[in-house]
Design a protein around this nucleic acid. Structure first.
Lengths: 193, 193
DNA sequence: AGCATTAACTAACAAATGTTAGTTAATGCT
DNA sequence: AGCATTAACTAACATTTGTTAGTTAATGCT
């Protein structure tokens, strides 16, 4: 039983890496099997289907994001503090589970119909909670009076490059990264005068 | 001859839309043919291969970006002004040719080997020019002293959602959009105090 | 009118795809 | 020791894929 869990996890991890590299459609079960060190057919002892792999990866990410949102919502502090913390957690998942996040960002559209709807709903829920923090911040005069949706997507997109770009040995630490991104997004690139 | 150009363009445009919607791998030549209103085999009177379609779309985008960079580089004005203008042009292409930009952003990895290298080189050239503006701005004390690469990718990513999200009838005009994105990226979301 | 080109079609191909069936050796429980 | 389960294998399947061959009607030039 523990062995089974283990092999399944290896398949899922390897799938995340391959899907990130070559896309869901561009990755065949034989490719994946080669990476795992097994025949394609053998993997079906551990997983139900190729679609199930995709579902697992996508919902792992969306579930985590929603849990993080719930966690931040019951924090106390300013909207700026909450936004900062949610963003920090958001970036943190990217650094920790980059391949899965990449799949959830790029290959979610290949989910089959009912799962696709579920995923889109989850994403919308997350975005809604995120937007609420921004709207509250604007209403309370804490943030600049921009369109909240525009701010939301600008921020969420702004951090998406992290999973494509960040590698530990790149001369930028995770702390610097977080700090600089926060600076740019909250304080802006231009110097205050 | 003009007819041929026309049909070819229809195929390319329709391909951009489909690739954006379902990905390069997820779009079959028969799907595309159905959209164009033609049998799959008939399209080969107008295009060389499925790969050629992808190449055309990707290089159309990278060529445009590089031309825009060259245009801005010979402007006079502050680094902030140049950065603003380059970003404005960048967003403009997204609004004008969203599907092609989407393909260049998401499906470039399916380019075949030599074209893939060419595309990556073009992208690197664009990023290098973009980064130079930021570095100059920092050196001249115009921008905050952040890591230039982090700033570069944060800005370039920040605007990527536009092609996924923007639709004319969404209550936000292109002008508002540009303005708000500039505000957030250059001045920051937080109010100056 | 005669001819060459264009652009559509149908039919078919070879390769690749996700998946199932059937088999077999190893492992662990009673 | 005997039995059930697990997890690997090979072989094969039905589809789908990108693409080519061969044909045919329409178009336009001389």
């Amino acid at each position: 039983m523990s062995k089974k869990q283990n092999k399944r996890q290896i398949i899922l991890d390897e799938a995340a890496k391959l899907f990130k590299l070559k896309g869901f459609g561009g990755t065949s079960m034989r490719d994946l099997a080669g990476e795992v060190g097994m025949e394609a057919a053998s993997m079906y002892n551990h997983i139900k289907s190729k679609d199930e792999i995709l579902e697992h990866l996508c919902f792992h990410v969306s579930d985590t994001y929603i849990a993080q949102l719930a966690q931040v919502e019951q924090m106390r502090g300013s909207n700026g503090d909450k936004l900062k913390e949610l963003l920090r957690l958001h970036i943190h998942l990217m650094l920790e589970d980059g391949a899965a996040v990449s799949v959830a960002n790029n290959d979610w559209k290949y989910l089959t119909s009912d799962k696709l709807e579920l995923f889109k709903a989850a994403r919308k829920q997350y975005e809604k909670g995120f937007a609420m923090l921004i709207e509250n911040g604007i209403a309370e005069g804490e943030f600049q009076p921009v369109n909240a949706s525009v701010a939301l997507f600008t921020i969420l997109s702004a951090v998406r490059w992290v999973e494509l770009w960040y590698r530990p040995g790149r001369g930028v630490t995770a702390q610097e990264l977080e700090q600089d991104i926060m600076t740019i997004l909250l304080n802006g690139l231009a110097k205050k005068q």
